[in-house]
Amino acid sequence: MSYPFELDGETLWDAGYHSGRLYASLAHGAAEFLELPSGLAPNDQGGRDVDPEQFRGFVEGLYELYASTRNEVLHGLAHGLLVTSLVLLERAGGTVALTPPHEATLLEEKGSLVHSMAV
């Protein structure tokens, strides 16, 4: 069973059911924490539709939190969600400007994760 993330009927990530539900739940919680819309809405296929503009704003807010905190726990909690979100955002046609202290690591991890995120 899958949990698709779609944009205009195109599947951006055909996540496994558990992976997709957990990601959507984490994104929802982070969006609530950041006081931003996640850009992910339930769809008829049992997954989520991606609103590219809202989702980009969410990922930007998540990256700002990640890049600005010195709290190791908060940084770690945001990390996995951020890398997954960067892959999904790229597939939706968007990007976030990354700063040099984090850019190389995040791009490398995004490149590794992209192969695990089936389309």
Rank of each mutant, 00 (worst) to 15 (best):
S2Y: 13
Y3I: 02
Y3P: 01
P4L: 10
E6Q: 11
L7G: 01
D8N: 13
G9N: 04
T11P: 01
L12R: 02
W13F: 11
W13K: 04
A15L: 02
A15D: 00
G16R: 15
H18R: 14
R21K: 10
L22F: 11
Y23L: 12
Y23C: 01
S25Y: 13
L26E: 06
A27G: 07
A27C: 12
A27Y: 07
H28T: 11
A30K: 10
A31M: 03
E35K: 13
L36G: 05
P37D: 07
S38G: 05
S38Y: 00
S38I: 00
S38Q: 00
G39Q: 04
G39T: 04
A41S: 11
N43A: 06
Q45L: 13
Q45M: 06
G47Y: 10
V50D: 07
D51E: 15
P52S: 03
F55W: 06
R56L: 09
G57I: 08
F58A: 03
F58T: 07
V59I: 10
V59S: 03
V59W: 02
E60G: 14
E60P: 02
L62V: 00
Y63R: 01
Y63W: 05
L65V: 06
L65E: 06
L65A: 04
A67H: 07
S68F: 02
T69A: 12
R70Y: 11
N71H: 13
E72G: 07
H75W: 15
G76L: 00
L81G: 05
L81S: 06
L82M: 08
V83H: 03
S85Q: 06
L86E: 06
E90C: 03
E90G: 15
E90T: 07
A92Q: 01
T95D: 14
T95L: 07
V96Q: 06
V96M: 09
A97H: 07
L98H: 08
T99D: 15
T99A: 09
P101E: 15
E103S: 11
E103I: 03
L106C: 01
L106H: 00
L106N: 01
L106T: 02
L107E: 15
E108L: 14
E109D: 13
K110W: 06
S112A: 14
S112V: 09
S112K: 10
V114M: 07
V114H: 01
V114W: 02
H115M: 05
H115V: 08
H115W: 10
S116R: 11
A118S: 15
V119Q: 09
V119D: 13
V119T: 07
